[in-house]
Amino acid sequence: MNEKAIIKKLQKGDLNVLKGIWDKNSQNVLNLAFRMLLDRDKAEDILMDVFVSIPDAIKRFRGDSAISTWLYTLTKNACLMKLRSDRCHFKIVSTRKSEIEEHSTGKEDKGLSEPDKETLFAGLSVLTPEIRSLLWLKDAEGLDIKTLAEMYKAPEGTLKARLSRARAEVRKVIEKENQYA
């Protein structure tokens, strides 16, 4: 089924089609929300909010972008609204870092090497949620710069510069963490 057919069915309130989108995209939505909010429970709430809002939001969706890109935009906006309402555009204090880390990641993540994960988490936490989402979508999810420019409504050059600065900041933190380690 092509995307236009999917959109038409979604507009009619077809839950089976929505389930298909859930199976394909829910992980990506959850992980983007988690990277922005740094809280597993809140990310899970955002995931559900995004999918509950789809039957209404799809009526305004013109199909200019891929559904997955549209979902990322919905997620990003929902996270920013959540952050605004919580008033927590914060930099995580390093003393609370491990506490948040424990709280935010579930039991299922035990297999990963802890220092790498921790340093990466620390590196990301110095960025603002929006830049964090940008970096995650580019470097982890592999979205191209053109799609990101549409999502963030910014010129490609600006986004490239932001990404470059963000990577430099993350690397600096990771290097420091490794030195202390």
């Binding site: 829910s26 992980q27 959850l30 992980n31 988690f34 597993r40 990310a43 899970e44 995931l47 990641t105 579930g106 299922e108 993540d109 990963l112 090497s113 790498d116 994960k117 990466l120 988490f121 995650w136 470097d139 982890a140």
Partner: peptide, 9 residues
């Protein structure tokens, strides 16, 4: 990001 944790709903 390959070592970053990937959550499952």
């Amino acid at each position: 990001f390959s070592k970053a944790s990937r959550l499952v709903p």
